[in-house]
Computed example of a mutant assay.
Amino acid sequence: MFPVENTYALMQFEKENVSRKIIHELKYKSRENIGKTLADWTSERLDFKNEKPDLLISVPLHPKKLKERGYNQLHLFTEILSNVYNIPFDHDIIKRNHYSKAQALKDKQHRLETENTFSLTRNISGKHIVLVDDVFTTGNTLATIAWEILKAGDNKVSVLVMAVDV
């Protein structure tokens, strides 16, 4: 596994749970305002203690998926947290290299196939970065992105997810 400074999760993501319905509304039903509500709720609860991160990065969508969905469900969430905590965000520093179906639609074996899925669009070094994602399932997406960031230089990675799939 990769060295992660901190992991923050807002709720559990279970079948027939309200959190699953909330995330699905955000991702698949064009309810971007849910991202704002979750960011407001997060900002009331999250404290970066004495070490404020340098940068917030949300997990990118492939351009084809972005066009299909119309927006990245993590952007507004990330931007609001950026504003509240005065931490810059960058939606373009990580690129998704391949189009694939949603993780939720894949079986466990195919969720593990993440090699060369992401790449950095420019080099970053000496930063504490918080990766933002909606649901932590296997951790492979975040691990793959974190590895790209860690390979780039003397960086630290923390993770913030809206929900954990238990």
Results as ranks from 00 to 15, higher is better:
S43T: 08
N83L: 12
E51C: 10
I129M: 03
S43D: 10
L56Q: 06
E115I: 05
K101I: 08
E113D: 02
H110W: 04
D133H: 07
L81Q: 13
T37M: 15
R96L: 05
Y71K: 06
T144N: 10
Y85K: 07
N123K: 14
G139F: 00
D133E: 13
K67C: 01
I80S: 01
N72C: 13
E51Y: 07
L74S: 09
K52F: 05
T114L: 10
R111K: 10
N86F: 06
P53I: 04
L56M: 08
V130W: 02
G70L: 12
G126M: 04
R31K: 15
E25C: 10
G70Y: 07
N72V: 04
R45W: 05
S119E: 08
K67P: 02
K27G: 11
Y99T: 06
H110G: 00
N116W: 03
V132Y: 11
G35A: 03
K52D: 02
S30F: 03
L66D: 07
N83E: 15
G70W: 05
T114I: 14
V132M: 14
T114R: 04
I129T: 07
N116Y: 09
N83Q: 14
R96V: 03
A104T: 15
V59D: 06
I129R: 06
E113M: 04
R69D: 07
I129E: 05
N72Y: 06
P60I: 07
L131I: 08
F136K: 14
Q73C: 02
G126I: 02
H110Q: 12
A104I: 14
L131D: 00
L26I: 12
A102P: 15
K27C: 12
K64Y: 06
N86G: 07
K95M: 11
T117H: 02
D133M: 05
V130G: 03
K29W: 05
